[in-house]
Amino acid sequence: MLLKTEDELIDFAYDAFLEDAQTQLSPADQILFAMQFEDLGAVDIVDLGSDWPASVAMGVNDDEYCELHIGLVDDKDLLSDIFGRVLVKKKANDKFIHILWKTE
């Protein structure tokens, strides 16, 4: 099975995030993200959260899925303000994606 590379996973998640950010994030978070992402933004691949099955109503495992966080880093270079948790399939050409958006 051909899998997406880390760069492809990041690009896919970020592009999908940007497509819906204006309708899913609050106006304040949209402004914050737009003004600070260039300097403080990050898209990180993280360990798969155990709460995904409740959100997507199906089994989720490390072999098939990848979780990414999109947000801003703090002064210690840690992702502290997460605007979206993104679940994607690792398989190349699979367009599955689910985003849990930041809520206030």
Rank of each mutant, 00 (worst) to 15 (best):
Q22A: 15
T23N: 13
E19K: 12
T103H: 12
A54R: 09
L100V: 05
L3H: 01
D74C: 10
R85V: 06
T23P: 02
A92V: 05
G71N: 03
S50L: 08
K102D: 11
G84R: 08
I31E: 03
L78H: 08
F12I: 01
M1P: 13
E38I: 08
F37I: 10
G41S: 04
V60G: 09
D20L: 15
L72V: 11
A21R: 03
V46I: 11
G84M: 04
E104K: 11
E19V: 09
S55T: 06
F17K: 05
Y14E: 14
E38V: 02
R85K: 15
D75K: 08
A21G: 04
L9R: 11
L78D: 11
L25I: 04
D7I: 10
V60M: 01
D94Q: 01
L9E: 08
A54C: 09
A54P: 00
L32F: 04
S26D: 10
M58D: 12
L72K: 08
G41C: 11
S50H: 03
I45K: 12
H98K: 11
H98M: 13
W101G: 04
G49L: 01
D7M: 04
A13E: 01
K4S: 03
A28V: 13
R85M: 08
N93H: 01
I10R: 06
D74W: 15
G84E: 11
F83I: 08
C66D: 03
D44N: 10
E6L: 10
F37W: 14
G71S: 12
K90T: 01
A21T: 07
D11A: 09
M1D: 00
A57Q: 12
H69M: 07
G49N: 10
F17A: 14
L100N: 09
A92T: 05
D47G: 15
L3N: 00
L72P: 13
W52M: 05
D81P: 14
I45Q: 10
D51S: 14
D62H: 04
D11Y: 06
G84D: 14
D47A: 11
L9N: 10
V60L: 10
C66K: 06
A16C: 06
A13S: 15
L2V: 01
C66H: 02
M35T: 14
F83Y: 13
R85P: 01
K95R: 08
L32S: 08
